[in-house]
């Protein structure tokens, strides 16, 4: 099964494709490739959109320093993409690890590498947000609104794919797999709330 079929399959035949990935069609290299491909596309696209917005804002002022904007723009784009990729790779590994241990706690019997692999393939769901990024290039405000809407769709599709994968690899019910799939997101949310509370105290 070619990686292009895997990507398309995860969008049109998700259950069939996830099962196939867990039974030999998938690989860690393929999984990491999907993460890097979609993550890079998303963060580069967002960085370029922000740069265009800054350029538009500078046009409102009488500042005319295209050289500085280009130089600073390239550095900021590089940093933005690097941080975005690092964020996604951490999510890729830690998300898989946390989901695996939660699935284990819920009587799962799968392997860690399979959960991490499936987690990586779920990055395919970023394609929805990328549609928003394309719209953003044509109409910024509409693109931002559509991207925010598609962020929800992206998350739902990611959870859906991950749930199928955990249920299949660990042999647990869909409910338990769903809990494991969202466990990393819940943990991040709790950590975030905790940090904000600590700062506000």
């Amino acid at each position: 099964m070619k990686i292009i079929d895997q990507i398309g399959g995860l969008l049109v035949k998700p259950e069939e494709t996830v099962t196939a990935l867990l039974h030999g069609a998938g690989s860690m290299v393929g999984s990491l490739s999907v993460v890097l491909l979609f993550s890079t596309a998303l963060w580069v696209s967002l960085a370029l959109s922000i740069k265009r917005l800054v350029e538009a804002a500078l046009q409102l002022t009488s500042i005319s320093t295209p050289g500085i904007v280009n130089l600073a723009g390239s550095s900021v784009i590089g940093a933005f993409v690097f941080i975005g990729l690092a964020h996604d790779l951490i999510n890729y590994f830690l998300g898989g690890v946390v989901a695996h241990f939660v699935a284990r706690l819920l009587d799962g019997a799968g392997e860690l590498n399979q959960v991490i692999m499936v987690n990586g393939y779920t990055w395919v769901s970023l394609v929805f947000m990328l549609i928003g990024c394309i719209v953003m290039a044509v109409n910024f405000i509409a693109g931002v609104l559509i991207t925010l809407g598609l962020l929800v769709v992206t998350w739902i599709w990611h959870v859906y794919l991950f749930t199928i994968g955990i249920a299949e690899s660990h042999g647990i019910s869909t409910g338990k797999a769903l809990l494991a799939a969202v466990s990393w997101d819940i943990l991040k949310l709790l950590l975030g709330v905790g940090l904000v509370s600590a700062f506000l105290r």
């Binding site: 292009i4 079929d5 399959g9 998303l42 696209s45 990024c133």
Partner: peptide, 21 residues
């Protein structure tokens, strides 16, 4: 194959999302 067509479309979207901005 629909998954092949959708896969190509997904890659095209990823590429367009970089090129257009």
């Amino acid at each position: 194959k629909p998954e092949r067509i959708v896969g190509v479309m997904a890659l095209a979207i990823a590429l367009l999302a970089i090129i257009l901005p």
